[in-house]
Design a protein around this nucleic acid. Sequence first.
RNA 1: GGCCCCAUCGUUUAGCGGCCUAGGACGCUGCCCUCUCACGGCAGUAGCGCGGGUUCGAAUCCCGCUGGGGUCACCA
Length: 504
Amino acid sequence: MSSVITAPFTDATGPDVKVRFCPSPTGLPHVGLIRTALFNWAYARHTGGSFLFRIEDTDAERDSEESFEMILDALNWLGLNWDEGVNVGGPAEPYRQSERSHVYLDVIEKLKASGHIYESYLTGEELDERNKANGRAVQLGYDNSERELSEESKAAYRAEGRSPALRLRVPDVDITFNDLVRGEITFPAGSFPDFVVVRPNGQPLYTLVNPVDDALMGVTHVLRGEDLLSSTGRQIALYNALYEAGVTKFIPQFGHLPYVMGEGTKKLSKRDPEANLFHHRDRGFIPEGLLNYLALLGWGLSADQDIFTMDELAAAFDVTNVNPNPARFDQKKADAINSAHIRRLDVNDFKSRLMPYLQSAGIVGAELSAAEESILTAVAPLIQERLVVLSEAPDLISFLFKTADQIVVEEDAKAGLPENTVEVLNAGVAALESMDESAFKTEAIQAALQAALIDGLGLKPRVAFGPLRTAISGRRISPPLFESMEILGKSETIARLSAFARIA
RNA sequence: GGCCCCAUCGUUUAGCGGCCUAGGACGCUGCCCUCUCACGGCAGUAGCGCGGGUUCGAAUCCCGCUGGGGUCACCA
């Protein structure tokens, strides 16, 4: 037993770096959780080290397989690949804590043998009473009173049928570490009492298994949420015990990432819709956009560039540049970043990413017909720079996949129509009818309509083309008009103009 | 309450003692471009929480205050 911290912190750099992502599968993947995964991933890729993925499912009450699947889904969708761990394997298998009980049992025995953990029989209520009786604040918690329990006392407790929890004997010294994002942090001696690491039923707690697995798996850099900062002193005490018991060779470096905040001064709660990663996917965020925005929550590539690729992120990322103050999740900024990434997509790539959204909106089936394929190919470049999120696409282009009689004119489109709508439509029909079927192309359409409506009727472009747009799309806002007409073709275009002229 | 963390425009950041008359981005406003909406271009809006030090000089370093957050479980 030592009364000082004897274990050294690791000085691993470069390829020796090993970071990890170790979520508990409870509930939906939270954007804060994913941001943590991202920073770990980025640090591994930046250093040339490795990224480990472990599952901390020691709480059968709250953990679910469904949640586990969602975390995998999220990581795969985002392309945050890992080098070791769940579904990939590695030297420290298994990587789900629910399958590692034997490992913990072994470590517990070692810690008992080295005298770092001891039996504690007092229940919570008894502790409170003890504190009250001794004039000690209840909030102070455990008073370390069983450190030197005699064998007789233990026997007496056992005779009552009680089983002991196991507590770590915390060294009575200041514990200091250098946080990678915050600098030197010290927990004065006595800041926290000896804490429970194993339940009376033999079940190890997070306070034990998390550091034990990190130690056994060789994790060198622990990058995690700020909420764990306060427990770092305890963890270092435990690492020290593991070191002295011969279980590990070093204490990892720690870096505590800032919170992701919601509105006001509160952490983005699980209740907030934007906390749910899949909410953003459903809205039509692309991984590039979401990841870029998440990276901006506490980090920046440079002073004047905030749109970047994952490669750029990996090349430049360093935890020590992470900002320590909490960042607010700003949907508007996130949207802007996403739309910038949508515009950067190769048009064919963009087209294929639209598919799930068009399918779920019922605009196209699982398989595209040849006609649908060609419509989509034609319209994709027209809408690529108009989308903020992919889910906007169905409403914007569904009119191209319908027939004239299926067009429903939306209220706001009707409201914006001029007095002479019918006159404009009829003039438009006349102009287009004189066109050759094979010459029904964007430029020619524009020229014909311009001649008839702008020059001929002396209308303002806005007044001339508004009714046409509404007639063919049913909407106030649409992809460019003449291009849309070309896609629809001469007869369909005229059919729509005529149909709307009859009801307008 | 103990302990810990945080503090620059509305938001996010740049700034690591003089390049700051505090820069960028998003947002917002106006203008230009324009067949709608976008895109793009231009312009504008707005900030160092407070008080003490240290220094020739402080957004930057130190201390205090205030404010915010976290944590003190036989949850993770």
